[in-house]
Amino acid sequence: MNKALIEKIKNDPDFQKLVKERTRIMIILTLVELVVYFGFILLVAFNKEFLAQKLGDSVITIGIPIGIGVIVISFLLTGIYVYIANKDFDELTEKIKQKYVREV
């Protein structure tokens, strides 16, 4: 790719929209994952008693659904990313490619 083409793609509104959207989603989802996991780790480190609380009369503690929840949330987040990317990013990427791929 030459400099002129790179400039052209960079100034393309579709490219700018793609980058803006993807960066936003990337940052939000990464932060959610970091907060969920390190929040859990800090809970384990500082407040074991909280996780050891029993659910009603059950022998099961609140820590078990929370722990399994971290695994499930992580998986769901990857699903959310795939959903958004398939819905929005691929279409924009295809549009950009159509416009410039002959000039590469």
């Binding site: 790719m1 400099k3 790179i6 793609i9 960079k10 490219f15 793609l18 980058v19 993807r22 990427t93 950009i96 490619k97 410039y100 791929v101 590469v104």
Partner: peptide
């Protein structure tokens, strides 16, 4: 710059 365009679009 060139890398960035390729990262984002796969061109």
């Amino acid at each position: 710059e060139s890398q960035y365009v390729r990262t984002q679009t796969g061109i």
